[in-house]
């Protein structure tokens, strides 16, 4: 089993709330994603057993939604918005700055497996651009100074 007892309990709790079990697919994927950091065929199978629906239905949904990473990433997933409002305030140069700082390109993970850098579309933080999301947290109105501080804090926490 990949999913912990705690995760299974959370998914079963959702089953009690929803009118139909299939609706629990997305909540279950969210629980799994938060625990594991990605979802894959083994996880689809475990979820399908818990909510008692065919595995293919879990896979079908999971592969549609881009937020659920399909393979392991670094401990911290840095997602920089490069849509219009952020781009107007320098998202491209922000991405370049992080690439240089971490010595990786978009889509890559640092050698110590700490940081993965990806670009994402609008995250609804347009009036506080430029911004990035690291794992669940938003970091807004970014400046070079702030980015330095954020990465340093995460590194010392790891």
């Amino acid at each position: 089993m990949i999913l912990t007892e705690e995760s299974v309990r959370k998914i079963k709790e959702k089953l009690q709330q929803y009118p139909q079990p299939k609706s629990v697919i997305l909540p279950a994927l969210t629980v799994a994603y938060r625990q594991v950091g990605y979802v894959d065929a083994d996880i689809y199978r475990e979820i399908s057993h818990i909510i008692n629906i065919p595995t293919v239905e879990v896979a079908e949904a999971a592969t549609f939604y881009t937020m659920f990473a399909k393979k392991p990433r670094g401990k911290y997933l840095i997602q920089v918005c490069h849509n219009i409002s952020c781009a107007l305030l320098g998202a491209d140069s922000l991405i370049g700055y992080i690439e240089e700082k971490l010595g990786i390109k978009i889509g890559e993970t640092t050698e110590d497996n700490l940081f993965t850098l990806v670009t994402v579309e609008c995250l609804g933080s347009c009036a506080t651009a430029p911004m990035m999301q690291i794992n669940q947290d938003y970091y807004e109105k970014l400046t070079k100074e702030k980015v330095d501080q954020i990465l340093e804090d995460l590194r010392s926490k790891a």
Partner: peptide, 28 residues
């Protein structure tokens, strides 16, 4: 009763029928 349901990162789910499919556990 109320349920807080979270999506999976798909702009299309803001369109109401896609949103409903998404709550049903389908592709949005």
């Amino acid at each position: 009763d109320m349920i807080v349901h979270t999506g999976g990162g798909a702009y299309i789910c803001g369109e109401e029928t896609s949103l409903l499919n998404s709550i049903e556990g389908e592709r949005g």
